[in-house]
């Protein structure tokens, strides 16, 4: 997939500003960004649902319109025919995607088993819970074994158990050589899944890189300590030379020792172990969540809400 200088404007709002993006076959890329950043607009252009105002866009070597049978798409605004039966809906989408009628019902039933929805083949879509409907929609996106899978917020609204089921299937699809582009707000899942992340804010790409490298490059100059006797040891740790500040970690059990620039981490860790009995001590790591918040806030905050009338 290749996007070069792609732009999309809705009146006064420039939803996507000159987006360049290249995704290699077999990779799993996370498209991240705050609400209204332009992720869904970019995805809709990739899917040829809307036409870019400017730029070049090629999917699987051509126009997505001609490649529909090779692309699986789970839109952000998803829905089902409420009164249609689940199996019938999946067979219908499968037929539209060019699958032969023979064996299609069996294939749909197998997918339902695989995604832990056995016994709903003959249920009406309206009888399913929201999470179950979302899993059915996911099947509709992958039923035809597409080469490229585009998932817009696939985990939103799912409980942790169902999110895990979906996450495992996404990993498995990638291991089979599928190219996957997923947009999500859930940084933990993106961090776990994606080999590469692209962050866009206000229609602009502000980060693009391998996940490991992004985390490495944004790692804080700090040491994380979990004292055996809890946070009351903070004052003793603060007296160690080279420590600028001691704060609480996200998990509330550990303390983060922020270092003065140029301080040797190994020396600080040795002093800390000597000063207080520790359950755990390690160099602090960045999370995608940290990176996301830092970059989005330093690039002008959240994007404006999507305009009315916008497709």
């Amino acid at each position: 997939m290749r996007l070069r200088g792609v732009r999309k404007r809705f009146g006064s709002l420039e939803a996507v500003k000159s987006l360049d993006l290249e995704i290699e076959r077999g990779s799993l890329v996370g498209l991240l960004g705050p609400n209204g950043a332009g992720k869904s607009t970019a995805i809709r252009m990739i899917m040829s649902l809307i036409r870019p105002d400017e730029g070049e866009l090629a999917v699987l070597g051509g126009d997505a319109l001609d490649m529909k049978d090779r692309i699986g798409y789970l839109p952000e605004e998803r829905g089902l025919y409420r009164r249609m039966r689940v199996g019938e809906f999946l067979v219908y989408v499968g037929r539209l995607k060019g699958l032969p009628a023979q064996g299609l019902a069996l294939r749909a039933a197998q997918w339902l088993e695989r995604i832990e929805l056995p016994g709903v083949f003959k249920s009406r879509c309206q009888e399913l819970s929201k999470g179950m409907q979302q899993k059915v929609q996911f099947i509709a996106a992958v039923l035809h074994d597409p080469d490229l899978i585009v998932l817009d917020e696939p985990f939103s609204g799912l409980d942790p158990v169902n999110a895990r089921v979906l996450l495992d299937i996404v990993k498995e699809l990638q291991s089979q050589g599928r190219t996957i582009l997923l947009s999500t707000h859930q940084m933990a899942q993106a961090e776990q899944l994606c080999s590469r992340v692209v962050l866009i804010n206000r229609g602009e790409k502000i980060l693009d890189g391998a996940t490991a490298q992004v985390l490495e490059s944004h790692a804080p100059h700090a040491v994380e300590v979990e004292p055996l006797h809890g946070s009351r040891e903070a004052s003793r740790l603060a007296q160690i030379p080279g420590i600028a500040r001691v704060t609480g970690a996200v998990d509330a059990r550990a303390l983060v020792l922020e270092l003065v620039d140029g301080t040797d981490v190994r020396e600080v860790m040795a002093h800390a172990i000597a000063a207080v009995p520790c359950r755990r001590i390690e160099m602090a790591r960045a999370t995608l969540d940290d990176v996301f918040v830092r970059l989005v806030t330093t690039h002008g905050g959240h994007a404006r809400h999507e305009a009315r009338g916008r497709p």
């Binding site: 404007r9 809705f10 649902l49 809307i50 036409r51 319109l65 916008r310």
Partner: peptide, 18 residues
């Protein structure tokens, strides 16, 4: 707003019509 709507023309085309 509908001015933008007209610009948000979907990429319908005869190509790939099946």
């Amino acid at each position: 707003m509908m001015e933008q709507a007209s610009r948000a023309v979907t990429a319908a085309s005869a190509a790939g019509f099946r």
